[in-house]
Amino acid sequence: DEETLERIAKELKEKGWTLIVNGKLITDAREALKWLLEEEERR
């Protein structure tokens, strides 16, 4: 759910983690959240 996604995005940002999505590096939590939401919609 959205709360979980926001928590994940926040944790990613705090830890300075990066996500690699389709070979693209995502360092911004907002971008990561946007991607996660798009993935949820596809299901």
Rank of each mutant, 00 (worst) to 15 (best):
T4W: 15
D28M: 14
E11T: 11
I20E: 02
E31T: 05
E40N: 11
R42M: 06
W17D: 00
I20V: 07
E2N: 07
A29H: 03
K34A: 08
I26M: 05
E6A: 12
R42W: 07
K15F: 12
D28S: 08
K15Q: 07
G23A: 07
E39N: 11
K24R: 08
I26D: 01
A29E: 04
T27V: 08
W35A: 02
L33R: 01
E6F: 12
E31A: 09
L12M: 08
E3K: 09
E14W: 12
A29C: 15
G23P: 02
A9H: 06
E6R: 13
E40V: 14
V21T: 02
L33W: 11
R42N: 05
K34R: 12
E11N: 07
D28N: 08
R7A: 08
I26S: 03
K10W: 08
L19V: 04
I26H: 01
E14P: 02
E41M: 13
W17I: 03
G23M: 09
L19T: 02
E2Q: 10
E6T: 09
R43C: 08
D1F: 14
A9Q: 08
G16Y: 11
R30G: 04
T27I: 12
G23I: 13
R43V: 06
E39Q: 11
K13F: 14
K15R: 12
L12N: 01
L25D: 02
E14R: 08
E6W: 13
T4I: 14
E14I: 08
E2A: 12
A29M: 13
L36N: 00
T4F: 13
L12W: 13
R42Y: 04
L36H: 01
R42D: 05
W17A: 00
G23H: 02
R43L: 09
T4K: 06
L19G: 02
K10N: 11
K10D: 03
E11R: 12
L5T: 02
E3F: 14
W35K: 01
R42H: 05
E39M: 14
L36W: 07
T18W: 12
L25Y: 08
K13I: 12
L12Q: 00
W17V: 02
I20D: 02
R43E: 05
T18K: 08
I20R: 00
L25I: 09
R7T: 04
I8R: 10
L37H: 03
V21P: 01
K10A: 09
R42F: 06
I26P: 02
L19W: 11
E40I: 14
K10Q: 10
K15L: 09
L33D: 00
E38Y: 10
E31F: 07
L37D: 00
T27N: 08
T18Q: 08
I8P: 01
I8C: 15
E2R: 10
L5H: 02
E2C: 15
L12R: 01
R43Y: 09
E3N: 11
E6D: 09
E39I: 13
R42T: 05
E11Y: 15
L33F: 08
L33G: 00
L5Q: 03
L36P: 00
D1K: 10
I20S: 03
L37N: 02
K15D: 03
K24Y: 13
R43M: 09
K13N: 11
E3L: 14
I20W: 09
A9D: 03
E3M: 13
L25G: 02
L19K: 01
K13S: 11
T4Q: 07
L36C: 15
K15N: 09
D28Y: 08
G16F: 14
E6Q: 10
E3V: 13
R42V: 04
T27W: 12
N22L: 14
W17Q: 00
E14L: 12
L19F: 08
T18M: 11
D1H: 13
E11Q: 12
L5I: 06
V21E: 01
L12Y: 05
N22A: 11
E40P: 04
K34M: 12
A32M: 12
I26L: 07
E41Q: 13
K15Y: 12
L25V: 10
R43D: 05
E2S: 10
E3C: 15
D28F: 15
I20Y: 09
G16K: 08
L37I: 07
R30T: 08
A9L: 15
R30P: 03
G16M: 11
D28A: 13
T18D: 03
E38G: 06
L37Q: 04
R43Q: 09
E38M: 12
E39R: 07
R30W: 14
K24G: 04
E41A: 13
A29W: 14
A9V: 13
R7L: 09
T4C: 15
D28T: 07
R7F: 07
K13L: 14
R42K: 06
R43I: 10
L36M: 07
E38S: 07
N22S: 07
E11H: 12
I8T: 01
T27D: 06
E2M: 14
T27Y: 10
G16W: 12
T27P: 03
W17H: 00
W35Y: 07
L5V: 05
E11C: 15
G16A: 11
N22E: 06
D1W: 15
G23Q: 02
K15I: 08
D1S: 05
G16L: 14
W35Q: 01
E40R: 09
E39W: 15
E3Y: 14
T18G: 05
N22Y: 14
E2W: 15
L36Q: 00
L5M: 05
E40G: 08
L36K: 00
T27R: 11
K34P: 00
D28I: 13
R30V: 12
G23R: 06
R7E: 04
E41V: 11
K13D: 04
A32V: 12
N22H: 04
T18I: 14
W17T: 00
E31P: 00
E2L: 12
R7Q: 06
E2V: 11
K24T: 07
W35R: 11
W35T: 00
E6S: 08
L36S: 00
E3G: 12
E14D: 11
K10E: 05
E41P: 05
A9C: 15
L19R: 01
K13V: 13
E41D: 08
